[in-house]
Design a protein around this nucleic acid. Structure first.
Lengths: 203, 203, 203, 203
DNA sequence: GATGAATGAGTATTCATTCAT
DNA sequence: TATGAATGAATACTCATTCAT
């Protein structure tokens, strides 16, 4: 018999489902997916353990929804800036702004990012979600920049590389604070590198 | 009362301990630390479950040894190239070689890297091992480059950033093969960026 | 994060918890605490192994409840007789009755007494429970006898000694049946000794 | 094939066997039979784990020998005093001395006594060893006292009871030190009771 | 006799999931 | 829908005992 998972129609139900997702989000962020058990999630969501399985097929299913929210939270701000650029000349000036935005997005979602990222080696589904995320960001930005005439032939590579750098820096910035690194200097290096990658002169 | 762990002196014992470490290495690589249980490790090492605790305090202790081996495998090749550079002029020419070496080290150890990295959010010990690894690599390379007169004031930042980029690229290269990316082009971008970071003209 | 143990409110739950306690009581009595494992307890209580940990923090926690029941079973009958004495003159006549009651309490709980007592050398919690038990009995009885004017200055010592003798005899009586002992004669000796200890003439 | 346990003939072997017994004695005393494992015993005896099974059939077998030593240590001093009594008149005066001797024997062997006693509910062999101990003591003392003309018909019961009281007091004295008890008073009560039991006038 | 490495059965405890109410 | 009690498979670790050397 096929397991049925309720698709909540009523407002109260939708809200309850969201509470569970939020509880999952928080707990996965705080202690990781494996250390968070369903009883804890239910408790934090103020629902019974049983009803969790009314809305989700299994624990993994909560993870899926949490992942979707994370993806949304990461992509949205980036696209907003990109779309707001209306002329090629703006690109150079916008780079520091983009750096800050990615930094902020990373900071705000650092914990859940880590928790989800930790699952990629063993969880193909999460892994491919991350890959899709990169695809989406790279291709959309590259397309936009080509549209604006900023980049041409190797746009994908340049954008992808730029995003890798940015993400790597953001992670570094949020987490690893090594004592021997001056993070303002590092940020400036990042800015320069990105500018160069976009084929622009330094501001 | 203190739990004693055998420090094997005899050849056969050392070999057995190594078999266990290797089995752990493989299994952690393949299915991750949490999915690998002690019975599996023992079986793959062709030993009894009991003797595992003769050589290791607990499961975590196997992880420690596996981590140490990983760290060694990553750092050694990098230091070898760096130490082999004898004049500033060589640096520029060595960059592609270094890229290849890091790429290879990453490729060879990709799985275990992922498995260990997945533990950093929840395991302070592994996390700090990774941080120490970065510290060591950055500081040694920066020191060497300053010695050679290639970099000066912001050497730490430049080297650290360069290693981040390299690692990020290596990860990308090994794992995520996106269809829309031409990885040779990307590699060339990496090379250029690193060269620029080292304050050198493009070759 | 704090491990929660269900405090059963519903009748069925309370009954289930009691079944587990009873199973523990029986098994600890029959084969001792260390030889009784949780699977056996669950099986005898006709519950799953999991639910045991719904009602008890750990195996030790079952022991605690079993101990509490034992303590109650031992103290109650003794206090009942003591409280029933309303005049000094009765004390002497009541002694044989008290002997019988302690004997019966011991007989009824001999096995669990042994099982618990066996833990006192290594288990400080059980050990102090036994000490508290002795304290409680000695002090309550001594207070009552002082109230009745039967004993005065060295009441605590006399009562404590009397209880020791009684307990020792009870143990002997229940367990060790040596062939060369006439237990009726022995019981009479006990009666005489207790009477003398209470400062009374032989009846 | 019948398991063979070496009966050591050579001096070195006998000494080694004794070291194992002594190590067992100490460890059982300190942490109890169940908490002491064979590896610990071997280590403390400075022998290999394997050779333990050259001298003893199993762990239980060490316990047997330890028990025998305990029994000897308890009985010897008591018999010595008893045998030293040459006339009925001495008995009364010797009682305090006997009390002290039993007290000392108990004090010296309290830990091992507890450890062994803890096994009586689950170990029939140890249990019967304790019973035999009581038998031996009671019957020997009773015989001697009858010989001396101190006791007559109910000698066994009186002696047995006396020994119970003495043992109970010794245990109390060594272990339970309740605050509300004046142990000198209690000791005096014991002395009086024993004197009365022996059918003697108070000194 | 002696060693100590090796064995593997045994045990408390957790947790995703189900189900009676 | 909702509850939360109940299930039972899964897992790290211990230790008496054996055995190759």
């Amino acid at each position: 018999m096929a397991k049925t998972v309720r698709e909540p129609r009523q407002v109260r139900s939708i809200e309850k489902k969201n509470r569970i997702i939020r509880a999952g989000y928080e707990l996965f962020s705080e202690i990781g997916y494996h250390n968070a058990n369903t009883a804890m999630i239910a408790k934090r969501a103020a629902v019974s353990t049983g009803i969790v399985y009314g809305y989700f097929r299994d624990k993994k299913d909560i993870l899926r929804e949490v992942t979707a929210i994370y993806m949304e939270r990461i992509t949205r701000p980036v696209f907003e800036v990109i779309n707001a650029i209306s002329s090629p000349d703006e690109v150079c000036n916008k780079i520091p702004e983009i750096v800050e935005i990615v930094l902020k997005a990373h900071k705000d979602n650092a914990k859940i990012h880590e928790a989800l990222h930790a699952l990629t080696p063993t969880d193909p589904e999460i892994n491919s979600a991350f890959i899709r995320l990169e695809d989406e960001i790279t291709l959309k930005i590259a397309a936009r920049l080509k549209e604006l005439g900023v980049l041409s032939s190797d746009a994908n590579e340049r954008v992808h590389f730029a995003m890798d750098i940015l993400q790597s820096f953001a992670h570094e910035y949020v987490y690893d604070h090594h004592e021997y690194i001056d993070y303002d200097k590092l940020k400036e290096l990042v800015r320069q590198t990105l500018t160069a990658l976009m084929g622009l002169r330094h501001s």
